[in-house]
Design a protein around this nucleic acid. Structure first.
Lengths: 246, 246
DNA sequence: AGCAAGACTTTTGTATGACAAATAGGACAT
DNA sequence: ATGTCCTATTTGTCATACAAAAGTCTTGCT
């Protein structure tokens, strides 16, 4: 079995590094449940044979997976899958592998739960702690949302809006959440395929967040964010196809 | 320059793998600001010379750092430090390197801010979503806290309590927060060096969380957690030595 | 028989040397 | 001045060899 080229969003085919492709292949198989936590993985030589690569390339893939908390390696023992609680779920790759093996509905439900947990607090912090240039970035992102024409522009400006808000909060420990938001939004937008009729409403909700942040009104920002998330939840449950996978 | 053995908590000296030691050395230098985001790092051969290791070992260290979002490597370009917003701050290693280069007060302040943001919500979720065995684990952790005699036992059982609570929330995306809590608590306990006279009060506060979770009362769990965090904040600001580093 | 010390074996860890591939930046031609 | 090609540097990949760790088996002692 040889390993294919990398299929990215929009169907573009990019051939990443060999070790990156191997990493992805193994990572997806782990996330997909083929190897459960505690289970032993094939040894490096075997992987090399499996994917037609040298042990070097395999080892680099394994080092990355180890750094992401998915596995652990020891001499004579080999590599074992770590318990899920140690997986760096907020890592870009891990999270996207996670996404690819889940049904969309379940994915959106759990990400929304996490968003409801942190984003109101982030909005609050953002209102109270932002610097002028950070606010500027938020305003620019909002303008981009307002003038977005294509689906792609809507998604990217929406993501940028939330990233900017995250930056306003001025707490580095919260940065990794950007990944959740990014994946949630892009999944959401292609979940509700056709042009979203709620976009005007969403714009208004975003605007009220900007206003609250600009006014340094923490509670108002929190409420505005709650309203936005509630609306998003509605959109999700409204456009729910029963259990279409992927 | 050769690279020393690994100094772990409790002063124990463990000699980790060579590539792990190199990774740590470079990681700490990045976190310490010696190499700023955007800056170019020495090439692999240079690192090898610096630490008296082969390119193989250096490359594995670099692969790990790349996986943690600290750097990016490309042929001809070499390795560059990524912007801080891409750093996986919730990775165990990255976070602990971060901790070693910050002053304790600042570290505790920012971690407490993050805790106030997420833990009340976690407590709420935990109350509403826990399974019986998860509650059992929480209760056991609480008992361990109650019967803790040594400082070490207090820290570890406290950490286990919050990890158990996190598990009760049943949302994998929140798991990485365990790292923040773990580091926050252990830093806190050795910040307030002598036997904590507030331990009895802390116990009561933890107990009220257990009760609320057991009663599946979300709002009560949230409030109990808020009370606990407020108390922790008080302890921190009370025992504040002006600006003692490390 | 029971048990412990030591040899064996498997797997990862590290080193070395060689070449391939990517690409920034300079050299050159138009 | 501008676009094209070349080249030098750096990472990416391969092959091979040996070191180190750690289960497992064997052997010998009591």
């Amino acid at each position: 079995m040889t390993i294919g080229t990398d299929r990215r969003k929009s169907g573009k085919v990019s051939k990443a590094n060999l070790h990156a492709r191997i990493e992805r292949a193994i990572g997806e198989r782990i996330l997909g449940g083929e190897f459960s936590p505690g289970a032993a993985l094939p040894n490096e030589a075997a992987w090399g044979k499996t994917y037609g690569a040298s042990r070097t390339a395999v080892r680099e893939a394994i080092k990355s997976l180890t750094a992401k908390g998915l596995i652990q390696s020891r001499p004579k023992i080999g590599s074992r899958v770590e318990p899920r609680s140690r997986w760096n779920m907020l890592d870009r790759d891990v999270f996207s592998w996670h996404r690819t093996v889940m049904d969309r509905k379940g994915f959106l439900t759990s990400t929304q739960e996490a968003r409801r947990l942190v984003e109101p607090g982030i909005a609050d912090l953002a209102a109270r702690k932002h610097s002028p240039p950070q606010l500027e970035r938020l305003v620019i992102a909002f303008r981009a949302m307002s003038s977005a024409k294509t689906m792609t522009e809507m998604v990217s400006s929406d993501v940028e809006f939330h990233e900017a808000l995250l930056a306003c909060a001025n707490n580095e420990l919260l940065m990794p959440f950007g990944i959740i938001i990014e994946q949630a939004l892009s999944t959401l937008f292609d979940y509700t395929t056709q042009r979203n009729p709620h976009y005007q409403r969403a714009l208004k909700l975003h605007e009220s967040i900007v206003r609250a942040v600009a006014a340094a009104d923490g509670p108002a920002a929190r409420d505005a964010m709650l309203a936005l998330l509630k609306d998003t939840d509605r959109v999700i449950s409204a456009s729910a196809p029963p259990d279409k996978r992927r």
